[in-house]
Design a protein around this nucleic acid. Structure first.
Length: 582
RNA sequence: GCGGCCGUAGUCUAGCCUGGUAGGACGUCAGCCUGCCACGCUGAGGGCCCGGGUUCAAAUCCCGGCGGCCGCACCA
């Protein structure tokens, strides 16, 4: 890393040309925060717009926009207040901080998972766990929660948190969304918005931020009818997977399979997840990332979030850090809806009518509310709601074989004993059933994706930078130059620029410096087309149009510029088709 | 958060060891020049990350903070 690598060059370019820079620079900056400049802000919008077009419009999702701050209960239900927290113990002598549960496991061989702080503290003391670095004594463990905490209104006790993902906005609004989908499955809801995570140590510029923008959607489908009708469109598409099994065998090279094979072989568990992974791969192709520089890496169970049954990260090769995650594809099952249902008391199940009513015998759980109340006190209401969602057979079997049923909830496990529930058999006629949809969640990091685009677009030619941005993401779409700053050429150029502005294009005008310098400036900003007004323009109203990537030029009628530019920017025509070559 | 290296105009950088308040390159701006690819001429504006200490005097030495990069940890 002695000579500037691509990352350094891009960061330098980003600052110089106004794509992005560190926030609060005049106060010495604050790690983990990034500001977008004029070019970056425009490009970010275009990238978001492209994502919305690619997923929301084409896949028929509902785009919503929900609040950033949420009352505490929302993240208690989602599990973030417990799972987004790490127990940290600092060393009394050297001050280093360690994951308390990890130390316990390493030094005492005792799993620290799910333990309370007090339990951790006593176990650490009992096993005489010391600082691995200096052997010093440890302070009692404390929690570090990555949620940004705040208070709502003037009451300190009204705690709120900033969202670490937009997902909960989709889940808490599920009833309305389901209603707007007219009760049918499958459907999806999407959102693009700012999220905050109080990272312990953000690094790597735009790659890991404390405040960032997520583009994600929750796709709800019937768990009893999980097939993806659109699979046909992508089943032959090749995707590269680094599965859990390969990772365990320390294989580093992903396998290339078709989407159909990935499902047949069980690499991907949910069809909808596979479908959207294929779409995500195509999306990255459109951003300039070829197949050989991206793949999907399965998250190991211990890396996976608490809600996830299977997660693949889409990773892209970057010059500096190797493969970096740009999107996550989690199968969240019904975890979130189940938890919000339990916490809010709202029925979030979807009613799905049967074609024919069914008469069936079934087992039903009858909880003894008095017993449960005594046993679980203030958690009793929650336990009752969770029990409602639990299959009776599962409870019956656990009770008869083990004498206890372990009900898993918000990071805690509740032990249900025989006297607390009874299982009865009854015959009922069912016209349909209510069930919680299963959810797949494709989630994209907008900021790092923007960096990825810049890195893949970056090129140098004859000692100058040419930013070969995808045409539809270029912040400046075209620029108009007068060849000379005399003989009415500037006036004509301004006129043409104004007319293109009126057509809706983002067009710059530049008359400073030599013509070559002006081309170079626009190449560096990633502007795909430049229009030059010369003496011939004054005679026959034609202009030259220059292509950023090839530096080739064609001559066309000024009047045809709007349609031609539009077709070029959309990629409908090749540059050579735009006019007569020079 | 720990350790190592680092922080000088918009950007890159010289100066720091051996204290005497900064020099360059590119870019920007103004003007000239310029008949299609940053390369001509003239001029202008712009800087020592922040705070404290040592000293007659600090970009320079010392301490602390903040930030950056790398390694460790962290990244549900």
């Amino acid at each position: 890393m002695s000579k500037p690598d691509k990352y350094q060059k891009i960061v330098e370019l980003a600052k110089r040309r106004g794509f992005f820079w560190p926030s609060y620079e005049i106060y010495g900056s604050e790690a983990g925060f990034l500001d977008y400049g004029p070019l970056g802000a425009l490009m970010k919008r275009k990238l978001e717009q492209k994502w919305v077009d690619w997923f929301v419009r084409r896949e028929g999702l509902m785009l919503i926009d929900t609040a950033v701050v949420a009352p505490e209960i929302v993240f208690q239900a989602s599990g973030h207040t417990t799972h987004f927290t790490d127990p940290v113990a600092s060393c009394k002598s050297c001050g280093r901080k360690w994951r308390a549960d990890h130390l316990l496991e390493e030094q005492a061989g005792v799993s620290g998972e799910g333990l309370s702080l007090r339990e951790l503290e006593s176990l650490l003391a009992k096993h005489e766990v010391r600082c691995p670095e200096c052997g010093g004594e440890l302070e009692p463990p404390q929690v570090f929660n990555e949620l940004f905490k705040t208070t709502i209104g003037p009451y300190a006790e009204h705690v709120g948190y900033c969202r670490p993902e937009t997902a909960q906005g989709m889940f808490v609004n599920f009833k309305r969304l389901n209603d707007l989908a007219r009760g049918r499955l499958p459907f999806g809801a999407a959102q693009v918005g700012r999220c905050l995570r109080n990272e312990i140590s953000p690094r790597q510029g735009p790659i890991r931020l404390r405040e960032f923008t997520i583009m994600e959607f929750e796709f709800f489908f019937n768990p009893k009818n999980p097939e993806c009708k659109k699979l046909k469109e992508v089943e032959g598409e090749k995707i590269r997977l680094l599965t859990e099994e390969l990772i365990r065998r320390q294989v580093e090279e992903p396998v290339e399979v078709t989407v159909a094979e990935a499902l047949d072989k069980g690499y991907i568990k949910a069809e909808w997840n596979a479908y959207f992974m294929a779409r995500a791969k195509q999306f990255l192709n459109q951003l300039g990332v070829p197949d050989e520089n991206q793949y999907f890496r399965e998250k190991l169970p211990n890396e996976r979030a608490h809600y996830s049954a299977q997660t693949y990260d889409q990773v892209v090769k970057l010059s500096r850090w190797g493969y970096v995650e740009v999107s996550g594809h989690a199968w969240r099952t019904d975890y979130d809806l189940r938890m919000h249902m339990a916490y809010s008391g709202e029925d979030l199940r979807v009613y799905l009518p049967y074609p024919e009513p069914k008469k069936i015998k079934r087992k039903n759980l009858k909880p003894d509310k008095a017993e449960i109340g005594k046993a679980f006190k203030d958690r009793a209401a929650l336990v009752l709601r969770l029990l409602e969602l639990t299959p009776a057979e599962e409870v019956a079997e656990a009770l008869s074989s083990e004498g206890v049923y372990r009900l898993r909830g918000d990071g805690e496990t509740y032990e249900i004993k025989p006297g607390q529930v009874s299982v009865v058999e009854e015959e009922v006629e069912l016209k349909g059933e209510r069930l919680l949809p299963s959810v797949v969640e494709p989630s994209f990091g907008l900021d790092r994706m923007l960096y990825v685009v810049l890195e893949y677009a970056y090129s140098e030619r004859e000692g100058r930078v040419v930013l070969k941005l995808p045409r539809d993401l270029a912040p400046i779409e075209a620029a108009v130059f007068p060849l000379m700053t005399k003989d009415d050429l500037p006036e004509k150029a301004r006129e043409i620029r104004q007319s293109l502005l009126n057509y809706g294009f983002n067009v710059e005008y530049d008359e400073g410096g030599s013509i070559g310098r002006r081309y170079a400036r626009m190449d560096e900003a990633g502007t795909p087309y430049t229009i030059t007004i010369d003496y011939q323009t004054l005679e026959d109203d034609t202009v030259t149009l220059r292509d950023r990537d090839t530096w080739k030029q064609v001559r066309i009628k000024a009047g045809r510029l709007p349609q031609t530019l539009e077709s070029l920017l959309k990629g409908e025509i090749e540059f050579e088709e735009a006019g007569a070559p020079l």
